[in-house]
Simulated assay, not measured.
Amino acid sequence: MHVRNTVTAFAVAAALLTSAATATAATDPLSRPHVVTHFSLASSQQPENITVDRTGSAYLTFSFARQIVRLSPGGHLHALATLPAPTKASTPNLGKAFVGGIARADDGTLYVTYATGTADLTGVWAVRPGGRPHRIAALPADGLPNGLALDARRHRLYVTDSVRGVIYSLPADGGTATVWARGRALEPSTFAGVNGLKLHDGAVWATNLDEGTILRIPVTPRGTADRIEVRATGMPSIDDFAFTGHGDTLLAARDDNEVDLVRPDGTHTAVLTAADGLETPTSVAVHGDTVYVPSAAYLTNEDPNLLVAHLAH
């Protein structure tokens, strides 16, 4: 289904990225940021997470609309699936149904996390091309499944639970989810703990929102979790992130309207701010020399959007 809203074509974005830089706060290695898509707050089009395929199409979750959408390079927004609404949502911390992380397999299957506070719906859901969404693994109803990553080689999924403070693992084909990692570094202190999630260079990387930390957990040859390493600190309200392709350097979205460049030694610098159009950024994707940053406007309550910037290599 084609969703009508104020989508600006990616073709226009490409032209903007090659034009003269505007007066923004963007800092090296990012340049020429521009909001290419404005979503509808009235329709709960608040993008929580993103993944990008080889063609440059972006797949996003609209958290409170319970939707999975695709934004083509030509600027067309298509709703791929809407997850079923609970009879009465009682999602921890949120109170309403929440679609969180997203991952995409090479065959086009999309995986998302879904939290409703009900045992019949909370868990990991999958949507195959042309198919209907279906739950492939149940997760505890008193938790908040959030970040999601796919290990294509091991054919496994990893999921963060921001309320229970653990990371689950499960077969990508579906089945029983088990706690893969637990520990104080993953737990919440006030609101939400382990949040964003990525697989990188033989390890599971995650953030802790309350603690403002980036964590690395090596995967042992047996597939189990090794000791949790704290790789960076001092980033309050950190959400999800993406690696730039330069070793362990990454870009992290923060709910306080920042995207930080985090270097392998743990030092970090703001490279995007509200001056660039951020409205509670939630996640980051890197595709070639293009960086995508969705903003859900959770805290600003205005202009949920998708920002694109150029990444210098």
Rank of each mutant, 00 (worst) to 15 (best):
L272Y: 08
P221F: 12
Y298N: 10
R104H: 07
Y59E: 00
T87K: 03
G123T: 02
L30F: 00
E211N: 14
S169D: 04
V286S: 06
T122N: 04
D248A: 15
D106Y: 14
R54S: 15
P86Q: 07
T116M: 03
T55L: 08
A14T: 14
V179H: 07
F62T: 01
A270N: 07
P294Q: 04
K88H: 13
S90N: 15
D303A: 10
G117N: 05
P221T: 09
R128M: 09
H78N: 14
D142Q: 09
D106F: 14
S169N: 06
V308R: 07
E187S: 10
N93T: 15
A274S: 12
G108F: 10
A192E: 13
A275H: 09
L157T: 08
S31A: 12
T269E: 07
T27I: 13
T116P: 01
R32A: 12
A81W: 03
G175K: 03
A15M: 11
P188H: 02
L148N: 05
S19P: 08
I136K: 01
S31C: 10
P84R: 06
R263N: 10
I217C: 00
A206R: 12
W180M: 01
D256C: 05
A15Y: 11
P264G: 04
A185M: 12
G245C: 04
T207D: 06
A26R: 05
D173G: 13
D226A: 11
M235D: 13
V36Y: 00
E229F: 08
R154H: 12
S72F: 09
P47A: 05
G266T: 00
N93V: 15
H155G: 14
S90Y: 14
T82N: 00
G247W: 08
D142V: 05
I50Q: 04
V52F: 01
A177N: 07
I167P: 00
A13I: 06
L110K: 03
A115V: 08
D28E: 15
I167T: 00
T267M: 03
R182E: 12
T91C: 05
V112Y: 00
E229Y: 09
R254V: 13
E279C: 12
A65I: 06
P73D: 03
A15L: 13
T160R: 11
H310V: 13
I50W: 07
A26V: 04
G212C: 09
P92M: 03
A119V: 11
D260Y: 13
D248C: 14
F241W: 01
I102R: 00
Y158T: 05
A23Y: 09
L170A: 01
V35G: 02
L17K: 06
P171E: 00
V293W: 05
I228R: 08
W125F: 04
T18D: 15
A79F: 11
R263F: 10
M235Q: 11
